[in-house]
């Protein structure tokens, strides 16, 4: 039994989606995590709760609201149309937006916790040694927070790979555009192609296990150094 071209398309699309989302989340999530770790603003609690919301919210609920918001008449939809991006639902870009929100806590929380664990002292030390704040961030905070970033990268990527409900709601099932592996498996099962479904499902299972194993091994090694 070999994968069909449609299966390979779905795998490639999933990897592209997860890669894009992970990179974007690391870029956007790091400043957010920094703010959450250091701010004393009163509404920090609100932001923390919002960031954590995708952890417990049913993906279909999230997907539904995203569909409404991103739709042609939704507030975000009007925005994307006015800047010439068109409507995002049922496009790859729409999937990216949905996944950004869906996987946000998996990236932001480990980084935030790493920043909190580092504490203010290394930054103070760096400042007394003449390091400007940005210099201190890149030369001290980033290396010290490496385990947190590693966890964030792996969880963000893996979680996006495994996404189903949100995709179904705002992405639909367009081959090469929004049909990711999880949807493809669903399609196979619907069509009673269990062998094909096994092939993909087993692959995802192995992938997830391997990723987590690698993560723990790497973090253990880091801790022992």
């Amino acid at each position: 039994m070999t994968p069909t071209p449609a299966d390979l398309d779905a795998i490639w699309l999933t990897l592209r989606l997860a890669g894009t989302v992970t990179v974007l989340l690391l870029l956007l999530g790091t400043p957010l995590a920094w703010w959450l770790a250091h701010s004393r603003a009163r509404w920090r609690g609100v932001v923390n709760a919002l960031v954590a919301l995708p952890l417990i919210l049913p993906p279909t609920v999230l997907g539904f609201y995203l569909l409404v918001a991103l739709g042609p008449d939704g507030p975000l939809g009007q925005l994307t149309r006015s800047i010439g991006l068109g409507a995002l639902p049922f496009t790859f870009a729409g999937l990216v937006v949905g996944s950004l929100i869906y996987s946000l806590p998996f990236v932001v929380q480990p980084i935030r916790d790493a920043f909190i664990a580092i504490g203010p002292r290394p930054l103070e030390v760096a400042a007394t040694l003449g390091a400007r704040p940005l210099d201190a961030f890149f030369s001290v905070v980033l290396p010290l927070a490496r385990p947190g970033f590693l966890t964030a990268t792996v969880l963000g990527f893996a979680h996006t790979v495994g996404e189903f409900g949100v995709v179904l709601m705002i992405g639909g099932n367009i081959p090469g555009e929004t049909r990711v592996v999880a949807i493809q498996i669903y399609d196979h099962v619907e069509a009673l192609e269990y062998a094909q479904a096994h092939w993909l499902a087993g692959g995802l299972l192995l992938f997830s296990f391997a990723v987590l194993l690698a993560l723990h091994t790497l973090n253990d090694r880091q801790a022992r150094r």
Binding site: L129, P133, R146
Partner: peptide, 20 residues
Amino acid sequence: LPTHRRPIGYVFQEASLFAH
């Protein structure tokens, strides 16, 4: 002047070496 522009040396009470 922010800390990083003051020509100081500062030795903290507890070990403050960069662990990495």
